[in-house]
Design a protein around this nucleic acid. Structure first.
Lengths: 343, 343
DNA sequence: ATTAGTTATGCAAACGTTTGCATAAAAATT
DNA sequence: AATTTTTATGCAAACGTTTGCATAACTAAT
């Protein structure tokens, strides 16, 4: 037995007021007397009135809802970003609707189409790995629906972006190895089709150059996905070299973990024989032994910043700003894989 | 320069038809002639008509949207469940809106209030750790909004539930240790306020009893959160015993990993000296050395099943079913922490 | 007592879609 | 040719809220 939902009109009839007065009273509109407001609020409470947000959205053309498109939710980095987005959005009265592109351009386009139906006031996007052109997102500019991209961002058009400085982070990571005395440093790189992995490679090379170390292309191993298994393969390649690297900067933590494990199994001491640095500060970096030195990419903050920027653009439409690009600070977290612990 | 959105009425005027005909044509309604349908579809395409889903929801009282309340998005188990939900929902034309209770009853209640405003057609919930009574969800029953609970489910009222059989899974895990020859088996337990961890403890004890092994309360160590650090503490406690356990069943993978690491550091061989079984099949279980034998809790499938059950309840309201409870199958994944690898 | 100003409330339209009912036009039956 | 049936379309109301404008009821100033 469902009970009927109470509407503004029901309240109006009950209190012998007009629906507009009720609406304004509940909105704390200045033109309504305090006495009426109290009366209305009490009655609303009593009858269990809940505003119909769909009707409200319909009328105001605001949904207080933001859409998120991520490659996958179950990748830890993205789940952290989403968590940051949800947290900031919630505090500001927005809710978040999530879509997974599954790294498929086709699905990303489908989702873009769905999102044009006025469901959301703005969109936060991390591009699928397959995406090279972003035409399917350009419509939102025309429709006045703000977008913010994070991590994997478009290069073919001007957009709001939240990124970290991959070049600089990689530079810092590599520099750290150099300062620890490494002279023959390897790099496990991600797909060079992706800008962020390209930037990490560049940062790596730049650090070597700054310290007048040779850039030995043999020591740079390329992977497709930076997966754990690929890391194992890379580590084994290093073992076949006549001379091992004395330091490896890995473009993510998974591959760094593989290297640590494979090397250790071969009696190589970390960090004494080879020092390892990862990237992303995944939970495993604190658990693997030795603990992994890595770049903290501040995923949660990236989510917060994305939401903050997006909501600002949603609510201040008349701004003259065309697009903003924000680069977040990263930290190098030094752990045992590059430094013997005090203990 | 925003371009104006095209509405049904615009199409109607342009084609000299009524809005109702346009609506029906795009809906492939049988009463509309094929010729008209084609004409309308072509025009809609040409003008870039996108239906206003808010207006549609307003009229039909269906949002094609489902709400999810989880403790946190960035816990891997939940991100997997959400991924499963999104996947199934997407394929069935639903989208998902996510809220984090942050394991706070207060916030869970706030969210429940927000969700009453007709935003969603149904709700999937994993209760916050603080939640004991579920009164704040009972309104949805009255409002005819279906709910499905997963993992942490209410005990104080009849509800749709998707769970795994924690008792049986724990039984299987323990039995596996027994069959490997363990006789002195410990258990690292989760908070006994939570039913699932209570069930895991019960399953553990039941297996011991079945095989006529003594239930030694000293070997059962209790934690609050089953965190990595707590696991370390438990492992150290075991080390202080005059006689070590020869097997440990841990109520989750994090604590299992701690035990492996602490024991190994003390020269204890795994699995030869002590065999370890975890619970949940977290990614780390495949990476830790030795790889961890664990219970695969099929989180993604749990999400799919939740969405499937929910959508069925949304679309078949007239059913006589009051509530359904589904128990999913789990698997024991045997790895090196209980069995020497062939290599 | 008239005017002006203030305060509190109501009227009515609008948002874009869907849908029951009516009806016009065409086809089929008598 | 008259009637019934079928097919295709239109009319108009409804969903619940918000909001510009009008207005009524006071109060304050002339």
């Amino acid at each position: 037995m469902k009970n009927k939902r109470i509407t503004l009109k029901d309240l109006a009839k009950d209190l012998n007021l007009s629906a507009s007065t009720i609406s304004r009273a509940l909105d704390n509109h200045p033109a309504i007397s305090d006495a009426t407001k109290k009366k209305v609020q009490r009655k609303a409470e009593e009858l269990g009135f809940i505003p119909n947000s769909i009707a409200s959205s319909f009328r105001t053309k605001k949904t207080k809802s933001i859409g998120i498109i991520v490659p996958r939710i179950d990748i830890h980095f993205h789940s952290l970003v989403i968590s940051g987005i949800e947290d900031f959005a919630y505090k500001n009265g927005y809710n978040v609707t999530i879509f997974q592109s599954k790294d498929s351009l086709k699905r990303e386009k489908e989702i873009a189409k769905i999102l044009q139906n006025r469901m959301v006031d703005g969109i936060i996007i991390c591009l699928s790995i397959e995406t090279e052109k972003c035409d399917h997102f350009k419509k939102f500019d025309k429709l006045g629906v703000p977008m913010v991209f994070y991590d994997r961002v478009p290069t073919d058009f001007d957009a709001n972006k939240i990124v970290i400085n991959d070049f600089e982070s990689a530079f810092t990571a590599t520099e750290h190895l150099i300062k620890k005395g490494c002279k023959r440093i390897g790099h496990i790189a991600g797909s060079q089709k992706t800008d962020i992995f390209k930037a990490r490679l560049e940062g790596f090379k730049a650090a070597l150059q700054k310290y007048k170390l040779p850039v030995n292309e043999d020591l740079i191993l390329y992977t497709k996905q930076l997966g754990y298994e690929e890391g194992v393969i890379c580590a084994k390649k290093y073992l076949e070299f006549s001379e091992l690297p004395d330091g490896v900067f890995c473009a993510n933590d998974y591959t760094a973990v593989s290297v640590i494990q494979v090397f250790r199994k071969h009696g190589i001491r970390i960090p004494q024989d080879v020092a390892i640095v990862g990237f992303s500060n995944y939970p495993i970096s604190k658990i693997i032994e030795p603990n992994l030195t890595t770049i903290n990419d501040c995923a949660f903050q990236m989510g917060e910043s994305s939401a903050k920027l997006l909501i600002r653009h949603i609510e201040d439409k008349d701004e003259f700003i065309n697009s903003e690009s924000i680069t977040l600070r990263t930290d190098l977290i030094v752990r045992e894989s590059t430094q013997l612990s005090d203990a």
